[in-house]
Nucleic acid binder design. Structure first.
Length: 874
RNA sequence: GAGGCAUUAGCUCAGUUGGUUUAGAGCACUACCUUGACAGGGUAGGGGUCACUGGUUCGAAUCCAGUAUGCCUCACCA
């Protein structure tokens, strides 16, 4: 049989994925088994796969595949998000590139383009997930803007409106002048910016030369000032209370007001008040009934009301106004200043606080069960450190601005009647109203132009994907909800996770999921976040082409402790690929053996099998524990070492027949069984190669796939066996060590003499013989002359190496070990001589220390004897 | 500005309620081996006053306080 020297992912991945699909292994329907359910964090419908998705979905797939093998009815629901602002921005840009302005299109025309774009690019990312091996139930793929899910969104809006949680009002919102929409507080990213603090003096009205100096970072808003505010207790300004000042350039007279909101120490202690363009100034304006002059247009240019530089961008105007103020003698000084400026998460434009009519959702009531059930552990965040962050956010939550001035999304189900008798009467309902309930006419009804925030649909995801709104008592929602695990990035803990929890309790009176596993952020090897702009993010599909999907999955998981950021390095994928090759070659070795059913099982093989059997049980137990604690990276490392060290380096070496010799039937069968168990443990991590080898290692029926095989169960095992083998391993290492030091060929036969301590086991002696390449192994009752010795535990081993022995060298080695052991004994004795230790420590611990003492003493005795012998001989 | 999290080998990390060798793993590194699975391999080895300073304790990488550095989240000081 010709087996290639290396594993070829290309030749296997698509083949198995197709077969899994053909067999419907990923599709789930409710039955009487226990369900295990994950809903995917829906990626942007027009997005492409990046490293974050790669990590996130690999983890989900690992969890799902293991549960599937454990016999759960697993359902991983995939889908995409319409991502209103991101997608709309892309479509606008695409149209612009074609010379079409959004403003030239009607809403309907624009949406046609948008749907066209969605049809063309939508779902690419889902196809990419298949390359990764994601075992989603593709028959359940959902999209947040498909009909059923849209209906759910509107239904929830109407319901919350009727419950009094949703209101419409004029408020200061975060305005994105590039996206031309309001965004929620959570979508504003505050960045530190090096800017200037300008000190500008305003003349007191009616005075000759009396001035008040304010400090501002935004001189362009001076044109909209409607007051100057000082602290009531500020002695510097007390004589000015009640007076008025003249705003430069626009020459407007405005009052000097007082408010204890002012920090006297900051700047000059005098604040210019621009109610239209600052959140705090707006509050001051309301309180002091100030005029509001909106000097900035939606697109960030100066408005007519500004009077100067109308139509020019606010940042250009800032420079110009500073020059004007300097020229007119109003600018007192300019200093460097670092402040935080809000930027739009989606467009990165500087956010402009703007007064506008928006829709809001009141959060204070809704949030209560969501806080409670995370705090009481009903929903677990993993790692737990995020609970603090969650709690803090939830307790300081603001009302959620849910309207967006966009077209791509769910249009708000609210109508206004333009009839003169009923100015702006509001109808909120699902579906077009036939007529105005107030005046009875229908021809002047118009729907609110805005759409809803994207998250206003995705917060319903765990319910809506199972049609829990359309049909709240259907078998799917009853069976799958609440789901089990959610795997996502901490970045969207508030945007999405918290809000899903809120919606879950509001609409199902139950949590949406039990565990939230928060992954880290993928960074490059220099710790920078991977991003398109930096160009430091490898294309996941390129990586898959280069290292195979399994290799990349291992690469991702090797560096992904839960909740910590991971520094991704392509070398890890290489390591993953090498590991796949290692497994592949183990298979090659086994398949290369010829089996002779007439030969009896040699002792070494019998021992190897019993040891490996025990070791397998131990590893399965450990891996299960790690999975249960979401320590996925560690579970992988455990399996990795089990495969590489235990299986390849020890087990296969033990049972390997001599060159061109056959192996006995028993051992061969057991080995195939072990290989199968190993492949099962590997399957969640490396689905493709494990499926490939599953079929290569034995003949399978047409329904027999590792994907649907049973996960190994951890059975009881003989712990003593593992300890005895450990001893044997150390003896073998000792022999190898001496060979190396003495330059003896690894395969030259040697004789080993053992001076055994009472109670030591000789069970693995056949293994020591074989792997130590021993001619003979004998037990002696006293030290052997002319040989080199080493100790393992309390047993002493002697190897006659022929030729002369370097006495000095041997003496030095023994002294070294003696010193170490004496040092060790000292540490142990310190504890045992300490009455506090004896009296306070757990008796079991004391017992262990006593045992350590006995062992060390016996070892010291033997070493000293050897030393006497050596020096005595010289 | 307020909270939170971290700091262990060159790198990435374990170290599970304080006591399992005078701290472990993977990768990287060094030396040697290499025609019978794998040079993408094997064997062995070097490498850490567990960030710093105090404290609690019979005993601290582990608990407490402070310092330093880094990261995250929240926040309306112009």
């Amino acid at each position: 049989m010709e087996i290639p020297k290396t594993y070829n992912p290309e030749a296997t991945e698509d083949k198995w994925y197709q077969q899994w699909m053909d067999h419907g292994f990923f599709h789930a329907e409710p039955d009487d088994r226990e369900p295990y359910t994950i809903v995917i964090p829906p990626p942007n419908v027009t997005g492409v796969l990046h490293m974050g998705h790669m990590l996130n979905n690999t983890i989900q797939d690992v969890l799902v595949r293991r549960k599937r093998m454990q016999g759960y009815n697993t359902c991983w629901v995939p889908g995409t998000d319409h991502a209103s602002i991101a997608t709309e921005a892309k479509v606008v840009k695409k149209l612009k590139d074609e010379g079409i302005e959004k403003s030239d299109l009607s809403r309907e025309e624009f949406l046609e383009h948008a749907w066209e774009w969605k049809e063309k690019h939508g779902g690419i990312i889902l196809e990419q997930l298949k390359k990764l091996g994601a075992s989603c139930d593709w028959e359940r793929t959902r999209f947040t803007m498909e009909e059923d899910l849209s209906d759910a969104v509107l239904e929830v809006f109407v319901d919350l409106y009727r419950k009094g949680y949703i209101y419409r009002g004029a408020r200061m919102v975060n305005w994105d002048p590039q996206g031309l929409t309001a965004v929620s507080d959570e979508e504003v990213i505050h960045k530190e910016v090096q800017s200037k603090l300008y000190h500008v003096r305003y003349q007191v009205e009616g005075s000759d030369n009396e001035w008040i100096t304010i400090a501002t970072t935004r001189p362009e808003t001076i044109l909209g000032d409607t007051a100057v505010c000082v602290h009531p207790d500020d002695d510097r300004y007390k004589h000015l209370h009640g007076q008025r000042v003249i705003i430069p350039m626009v020459e407007r007279s405005v009052p000097i007001i007082t408010d204890d909101y002012i920090t006297m120490e900051f700047g000059t202690g005098a604040l210019k008040v621009t109610p239209a363009h600052d959140v705090n100034d707006y509050e001051l304006g309301l309180k002091h009934k100030l005029e509001v002059i909106d000097t900035i247009n939606d697109d960030g240019t100066m408005s007519e009301a500004a009077q100067f530089y109308v139509g020019e961008d606010r940042f250009v105007v800032r420079e110009k106004i500073v020059k004007d103020l300097a020229a007119s003698g109003h600018l007192v000084k300019t200093e460097d200043y670092v402040n935080k400026v809000g930027h739009s998460e989606r467009t990165d434009a500087v956010i402009e606080p703007k007064l506008s009519l928006q829709w809001f959702l009141k959060m204070d009531e809704l949030v209560k069960p969501a806080v409670e059930n995370v705090m009481n552990g009903n929903i677990k965040l993993i790692p737990g450190k995020f609970i603090n962050t969650y709690k803090h956010w939830m307790e300081n939550i603001h009302n959620w601005c849910i309207s967006r001035q966009l077209w791509w999304g769910h249009q708000i189900p609210a109508w206004y009647c333009g009839h003169p008798d009923c100015k702006d009467v509001l109808i909120v309902q699902q579906g077009n109203p036939e007529s105005c309930p107030n005046c009875g006419t229908s021809d002047r009804l118009r729907q609110d132009e805005d759409v809803l925030d994207t998250w206003f649909s995705s917060w319903l995801w765990p319910i809506s994907v199972f049609d829990g709104f359309k049909d709240p008592d259907n078998p799917d929602i009853n069976y799958y909800y609440p789901t089990n695990d959610l795997v996502t990035a901490p970045e969207i803990l508030f945007f999405w996770v918290a809000r899903m929890i809120i919606a879950g309790y509001e609409y199902r009176d139950d949590k949406p999921f039990e565990n939230v596993y928060l992954t880290g952020i993928v960074r490059d090897d220099k710790g920078r976040k991977m991003s398109k702009q930096l160009g430091n993010s490898p294309d996941p599909l390129d990586l898959i082409a280069k290292y195979g999907a399994d290799g990349v999955r291992i690469g991702m998981l090797l560096c992904s402790p839960a909740g910590n950021d991971l520094l991704f390095d392509e070398k890890l994928c290489e390591q993953g690929r090498n590991f796949c090759n290692k497994i592949w070659n183990a298979f090659r070795l086994i398949k290369g053996w010829s089996v002779d059913e007439t030969i009896a099982q040699p002792d070494t093989n019998q021992l190897a099998v019993s040891w490996f059997e025990a070791r397998l049980q131990e590893v399965v137990g450990t891996v299960d524990d790690q999975f249960n604690n979401f320590r996925i990276s560690e579970a992988l490392m455990q399996v990795y070492r089990f495969a590489w060290d235990d299986f390849c380096s020890w087990y296969l070496e033990m049972i390997k027949p001599g060159f061109e010799q056959p192996i006995d039937q028993d051992t061969y069968n057991r080995t195939i069984g072990f290989m199968e168990a190993l492949l099962k443990l590997l399957h969640p991590f490396t689905p493709f190669i494990s499926e490939e080898l599953w079929h290569a290692v034995a003949d399978r029926s047409s329904e027999d796939y590792i994907t649907v095989s049973d996960w190994p169960k951890a059975n009881a095992f003989e712990a003593g066996l593992l300890a005895q083998f450990q001893q044997a391993k150390e003896v073998i290492s000792g022999i190898r060590n001496i060979r190396k030091e003495k330059n003896i060929s690894p395969k030259k036969p040697l004789n080993l003499s053992v001076l055994a301590a009472p109670g030591s086991s000789d069970r693995f002696d056949p293994v020591v013989r074989k792997l130590g390449h021993l001619e003979d192994l004998e037990y002696v009752s006293e030290e052997v002359d002319n040989s080199i010795s080493f100790m393992v535990g309390s047993d002493q081993y002697f190897l006659p190496v022929g030729g002369t022995i370097d006495l000095e060298e041997e003496t030095r080695k023994i002294r070294e070990e003696l010193d170490y052991t004496k040092g060790f004994l000292t540490v142990v004795m310190k504890k045992l001589n300490n009455p506090g230790f004896i009296n306070n420590a757990d008796p079991q611990i004391v017992e262990k220390e006593k045992q350590k003492k006995a062992d060390a003493e016996s070892k010291i005795r033997k070493l000293e004897e050897s030393l006497v012998k050596l020096t005595g001989a010289s």
